[in-house]
Design a protein around this nucleic acid. Structure first.
Lengths: 214, 214, 214, 214
DNA sequence: TATGAATGAGCCTTCATTCAT
DNA sequence: AATGAATGAAGGCTCATTCAT
């Protein structure tokens, strides 16, 4: 009788943990399969039972990075909070998770960002998923009379731009967690609901004080 | 040994140009010292007269990336445009330079971003410089009665957040040049001058509809 | 433990079929034991019940390659065709089998050749077997008056040389199936029976126009 | 002042000698770049200054194998021997070179054959070159009245087939140097000049005793 | 000053084989 | 009898860097 078949999925997960440790210690650039194997207590060749490639491994790492954030999006969207709060939580919760990660291990976050940059399809997938859930929330808000005169897509795009720096991990590093605060985020969400719609945008367009450069 | 300092400086500059070509052709990851030497028409060993390290070289590359943007900041700040326009130009010009670069060679920009990410001190320096000049403009605006009730630092921070996605190269890639437009930037700048100050912020804070999560 | 011998034998045969498929798909060089196991639907380790080695496996493959050709030799030799036709068929049939294989899958044949080259004992065995059967046919021909004045061995050797390019798989590749035709082979066999014997060879030797180098 | 630039070509040549030694000792299959480097007294990486690839290296090896034979072809073709002798020498000299190599180191020849098989373009190039020179000789012979009624290409093809086993290194191994002798080759060349042409082939076609299988 | 040669350590990956089960 | 896990050794190759000249 054969040995029980190892749960490849479990092995993968464990390896990702090891990768996490390694990235923490040595940064993203320098993880070699050999090192990973050593850290995981197995032979380099055995790694290839779990991941076809270094590429595939790194992709999995990138995916794992977004896992908890994706879960938050689902949870919040499916909750029965009032829309405005839903919107706030939609951004705030993920932001806070990121802040927490950043403050605990700034370099680790930077390293993951680097990995993400090299596996942009994964990032893009996450961004698209975010747009999907955001548009659900926007639709809900529209039913309640918000964002009049705007299409769902327009609204999603505007919202994304307004809170971009609470969404993009990179921003945390650029701007710093000292300056990015949920309180400000709350203001922005308020401004969103109060100001995004027909009347407001009409007024602004009317009297632009600025000549636009080519 | 006439002017060694200068010679070295000139060599460095020339090398950076060559690096630019190489990054354009092969991406950030794959520049090897050997290839660079070949492309520069010199021996690998001679490279080390100009840069102590590959590390040092890359740092210089990152610095060069911000050169033109830094120049724009100085120019605009020192110009005698009205403050509001000054503010707009302060962001718009750099944004447009970046858009142009991105649209001409998206991968090249991504490559530079990658390099930047690995040399964050350089990025941080540029960000700080930006804050410095921005605070000059803000001070000028305050003299004309804008941003009342806010400190310079607070204002700088809020402004930075509001236009963050026109400032951060990463955003261009995330959001796309289709959605990020100078017209929108103009609106945001307008909103800044019209809305950032005592009255406005007072109202918002008064009736925040949102309970803040931990 | 009913009939271990037979079971093993059957497994071996089946494995060789699988190898054939694999060689067809991936060439001779790239068959790995792991792949073979996968293709055969068994574990790599189980392979070693059937073949001690990769070496042993490949040897068996080489042997199998000659199987049908060996069978043809027996059949033709034991048939009651007239000798001349027997001789022709002796070569033509095997040649045609090979041509057919080559034209259907040129690379497959090349791959087998490669394997053969690495297991020359097997090839040598086949060649010796060919000589054996050929000498039977030659003996039969001699009883009918052909090849007078030549020994069986001499005749066998000369015949082998004359039709060598219809015998050697390699030749098909070098010369091409466009130029190697059974019609030509027929001529050569005719020339053999008509010209190989006392008178002819006497004449030739008499007036060799050529001085022989060292 | 820089070191004098090493003659890459010389290095290549020397490396090929080392490869020769290695092939002699270990066979063709198992030459690794690492081994070669060790045998050549240099680091593996340095090998790549001389050959871009293992592939390129092996190609050069294959080319070198044919070098002396190519030279013989030129020499003989350009000599002012009588055509018949020229033809004989054209094949005999190369055959003798090969025999000599084979008898000195049978396994070495086999190994080279293996390499040749894996770099068929090189072999094909040599074969084509052979055809070229042979056609020059054939043309010369035709001017003297030989091979009447046949085109140059037809003649070349027929000749190639007739002496194929003195031409193809593989044959030496299959047939053995005991049975392949220059005396026989001389007979064949004689038969070529005496028998290849209108009259002869007319007779043969007239009375083929053999029914041709599909 | 500047060179080309040369290296050594490391990279990712493959694979025949063994072994506990 | 048969398995899947696991390995160790090796494969080709790259590259930052050093060093004698």
């Amino acid at each position: 009788m054969a040995r029980p078949q190892t749960d490849i999925e479990a092995g993968r997960a464990e390896l990702l943990t090891v990768v996490d440790d390694l990235v923490r210690k040595r940064g993203a650039v320098d993880i070699s399969m050999t090192d990973l194997a050593a850290a995981a207590g197995m032979s380099p060749s055995n790694l290839y039972r779990f991941f076809e490639n270094k590429e595939a491994l790194l992709e999995a790492v990138a995916e794992r990075f977004f896992e908890d954030k994706s879960k938050i999006m689902v949870e919040v969207t499916e909750s029965d909070l009032p829309v405005r709060n839903k919107m706030y939580e939609f951004f705030a919760r993920r932001f806070l998770v990121m802040v927490q990660k950043y403050e605990a291990e700034p370099d680790l976050l930077k390293s993951y960002l680097e990995i993400g940059q090299q596996h942009f399809e994964v990032v893009r997938g996450y961004v698209d998923l975010g747009d999907h859930y955001l548009s659900l929330i926007v639709a809900e808000a529209m039913e309640q009379g918000y964002f009049q005169g705007l299409s769902i897509d327009e609204t999603v795009s505007l919202i994304n731009q307004m809170i971009h720096c609470y969404t993009n991990p990179e921003s945390i590093i650029y701007i710093g967690t000292g300056k990015l605060r949920v309180e400000k985020l709350a203001h922005i969400v308020d401004a969103m609901f109060n100001g995004l719609g027909v009347q407001a945008s009409a007024e602004l367009t009317k009297e632009s004080h600025i000549k636009i450069v080519s």
